[in-house]
Design a binder for these strands. Structure first.
Lengths: 235, 235
DNA sequence: TCCTCTGTGCCGTGTCACGGCACACTGTGC
DNA sequence: GCACAGTGTGCCGTGACACGGCACAGAGGA
């Protein structure tokens, strides 16, 4: 089913570059223009994409994917939400639920703080394993480190030895933290939710850097660790 | 590209029925088992689905669709978010941003109240045009009514004449409301965001029925109408 | 043991996806 | 005005591979 693979790759590429036309997609994917064109027509027929406003030759995704995607990890979310509520009540800050997927963690649910200055990440966003609290919480219970350790800010941990030491500290402490390692103004603490074969998710408290001084971290850390433990046993 | 159409139908059906196996899908879609099986394999290869926990023969969707879907209506969301923030500050209630898609409105962004009793609808959910505040706000500026008007609760408007009268009132008032017409314990007021060729979105304030007495509706109504107008002119 | 469900594997037929290429159109530089 | 470098669209011969019927293996249940 090569054409299905192609069509799905085209769909993902449209999502990344929208609004976008045949030529650019063809170059980006290394596929012949005719193939891309056929995929676009088919995706349009299936109503997964539509022409961008005004133009007829550039495409954007519809809400079809959102509709399918909201079913992802449905069970996990249902169980996690009450615990996330409680965590938000106790901290007053934004709570994230993420799952590991390949070389990243994916945000699948969030509850926001009511403070005016806040972190707003879109559902579905992928964060790097080595440069996010949730990622490090998961990574601490994996055997292998990511192949690449790209740097995002001045505090991103890019050395393999340094990362290994950090992960050992995470295991000792029970929770992971993030000191502006992905975005310099975002801080977080996170704890992994353990399943039978390793971490299946992770919970975090995310705040602007200004609202998470060092002395607050152990407190938040204890709360997320506790919530993650409850979630694990509820599954 | 019949097989792409098939594969996408299979994907949607998996999302609806997960965790689900070949046989059930084959029957639900009216496709031969072999065809469904091939689609499943391909979708798995492309990492849009994965075997359900434990079992090898039942499938569920991954977060891939979520990742693609979050790009839907990206521009609209970016512009709308600050206005939604303001609306939430002023009302203290949950704010929804929806877009019309076919015979429904689709939730593409939400900001939640911090009150413990609250409405939580998943992103991507589709609500009926004739039985939701957002739907009626949109419908008021369309030429045709939906073909079917199914009833959800005791207050759902199911008569075509009654609906037409209600929509006339919406146009006169500037905003639509919902008095438990989809779920009996949910109330809302909504206003359409007008584009050049008709409504392109709508904003709503949604609360538990107990928190929206009649005397509050004009106030909320005025706020959403104002926000929708600002959003329309910002686009 | 038989029957009825699962899900998987095989294979002959012929459809239709592939991808090269030509073409229409638009905007830019000279 | 002309050439040229971009768009996106359309056509078509070749042959790969999707289709779908069917057989089969395994798991319950009666």
């Amino acid at each position: 089913m090569q054409n299905v693979i192609n069509a799905l790759r085209v769909l993902e590429e449209v999502a990344d570059r929208q609004p976008v036309g045949v030529g650019e997609l063809s170059r980006a994917l290394g596929l012949p223009k005719s193939t891309v064109q056929r995929s676009l027509r088919t995706l349009h027929e299936a109503e997964w994409i539509r022409p961008a406003a005004g133009e007829v030759t550039r495409w954007q995704v519809t809400t079809k994917a959102l509709h399918v995607g909201r079913r992802a990890e449905l069970g996990l979310r249902d169980v996690a939400l009450p615990l996330m509520e409680e965590l938000r009540q106790r901290t007053g800050e934004t709570i994230h639920l993420m799952v590991p997927e390949g070389d990243a963690v994916v945000l699948i649910e969030r509850l926001e703080t009511d403070k005016p200055l806040r972190i707003v990440l879109p559902l579905g966003i992928r964060l790097p394993l080595h440069a996010s609290a949730n990622g490090k919480a998961v990574l601490a219970f994996r055997d292998e480190l990511p192949v690449e350790l790209p740097s995002y800010t001045g505090t991103t941990i890019t050395g393999r030895d340094a990362l290994a030491a950090e992960l050992a500290a995470v295991r000792a402490r029970g929770y992971a933290d993030n000191r502006g390692e992905w975005r310099s103004d975002i801080a977080a603490v996170a704890a992994a939710v353990m399943g039978p074969g390793g971490p299946v998710a992770s919970l975090s408290v995310s705040t602007p850097a200004s609202r998470m001084p060092d002395e607050l971290r152990p407190e938040y850390g204890k709360l997320v660790t506790e919530a993650a433990r409850k979630l694990a046993s509820a599954l």
